[in-house]
Amino acid sequence: MPRVALAAALALLAACAPRAPRDGAGAERALDVSAGGARFRIVFGPEDAGEARRVADALALAAPRAQRFGALAVPVTITLHPSHAALERAASRPGYPWLRAWARYATIELQSPRTWGGLGGLVGARRGRVAELLAHELAHCAMWQRAGDAQTWLYKGIPRWFTEGLASVAAGQERRHAALADLARFYDGAAPSAAGGAGGPDPLSESEALYLRQAELVYGAAHHAFGFLVARYGDARVRAVLDGMGAGLSFASAFRAAVGPEPEAFEAEFRRYVAWRGFER
């Protein structure tokens, strides 16, 4: 293998490998769990032994929900990090204060729920929130596992609205997002040929410009766009898109083969539906 290619391969393996918890005292520990027909390993430091058991408990709720569009065929390692700083390091995502987890093909980096705040110390509330977040992140893993393998999953060209929308719909997170009417107000004032709305870049096609500072807009638009896709074409077409990628196609080619229109045409159709208040009819 050429030296440059070897270096790239090693960098990819390092990015996808589970990271040991940092900032804690003592050796890491592991807990193996089966839930929803899938297998998991929870890696944690001694300070998070209780949280690891709660995560294991939450997997019973999260794993079946996460597999709506694809099975978790490869075991997933969930690493608990004792602080937000440790999570950002493991995810290689500095400056994301709202981030609580980061998924890859067969790993999830998870900030220990005991550090989230806003849960009032209630174990029941924590379990529900953890299960919801895990369902979202595991849906990412399931999607990538169906669409590719450990070497190809990063290179399918899947847009953020599809990846985040699929995970949000699978996790049942509609109540966490603004209503379609709010998204319609964002698009108000846009020129007929423009993708962006009066509020700036388009959250579907230009999400990178918004993701860091306006994550809720991006996540909300993704959820509603994917919900529109499922309502119009059904779950089976979504699975067919993933299977097309699994057979070697790019996202655009798989989407066209399974759904019909080009992804950009579908995005434009969804924008018209929102801007013309189709959801009110």
Score class of each variant (00 low, 15 high):
Ala25Val: 14
Ala27Pro: 08
Ala27Gln: 13
Glu28Trp: 12
Glu28Cys: 15
Arg29Cys: 01
Leu31Thr: 12
Asp32His: 13
Val33Met: 08
Ser34His: 12
Ala35Glu: 07
Ala35Phe: 09
Ala35Lys: 13
Gly37His: 06
Ala38His: 04
Arg41Ile: 10
Ile42Thr: 07
Phe44Pro: 09
Phe44Asn: 13
Gly45Phe: 06
Gly45Cys: 07
Pro46Ala: 03
Pro46Thr: 08
Pro46Gly: 07
Asp48Gln: 15
Ala49Trp: 12
Ala49Ser: 14
Gly50Gln: 05
Glu51Ile: 12
Glu51Ser: 15
Arg54Val: 03
Val55Pro: 08
Asp57Glu: 15
Asp57Cys: 13
Asp57Phe: 12
Asp57Ser: 15
Asp57Met: 14
Asp57Trp: 11
Ala58Asn: 09
Leu59Gly: 09
Ala60Ile: 02
Leu61Met: 11
Ala66Asn: 04
Gln67Lys: 15
Gln67Ala: 05
Phe69Glu: 07
Ala71Ser: 11
Ala71Leu: 07
Leu72Ile: 13
Ala73Gln: 06
Thr77Ala: 07
Thr79Asn: 06
Thr79His: 02
Thr79Arg: 11
Leu87Asn: 12
Leu87Val: 11
Ala91Tyr: 02
Tyr96Phe: 14
Pro97Tyr: 01
Pro97Ile: 02
Leu99Arg: 07
Arg100Ala: 05
Arg100Leu: 10
Thr107Lys: 07
Ile108Cys: 04
Ile108Ala: 05
Glu109Pro: 04
Gln111Glu: 12
Gln111Met: 14
Gln111Ser: 10
Gln111Lys: 14
Ser112Pro: 11
Pro113Val: 06
Arg114Asp: 05
Thr115Gln: 08
Thr115Glu: 00
Trp116Met: 10
Gly117Gln: 11
Leu119Ser: 09
Leu119Phe: 01
Gly120Ile: 01
Gly121Ala: 08
Gly121Leu: 03
Leu122Lys: 15
Val123Lys: 15
Val130Tyr: 00
Val130Arg: 07
Val130Gly: 04
Leu133Tyr: 04
Leu133Ser: 04
Ala135Ser: 11
Ala135Val: 05
His136Tyr: 12
His136Glu: 00
His136Cys: 01
Glu137Thr: 15
Leu138Glu: 04
Leu138His: 07
Ala139Phe: 00
Ala139Leu: 05
His140Trp: 03
Ala142Asp: 01
Met143Ser: 11
Trp144Lys: 11
Trp144Asp: 00
Trp144Cys: 02
Arg146Gln: 06
Ala147Ile: 09
Ala147Glu: 05
Gly148Phe: 00
Gly148Ser: 07
Thr152Trp: 03
Trp153Phe: 12
Tyr155Ala: 14
Lys156Asp: 11
Gly157Ile: 08
Ile158Asn: 09
Ile158Pro: 09
Pro159Ile: 08
Thr163Ser: 13
Glu164Lys: 13
Gly165Glu: 00
Ala167Gln: 04
Ala167Ser: 10
Ser168Gly: 10
Val169His: 10
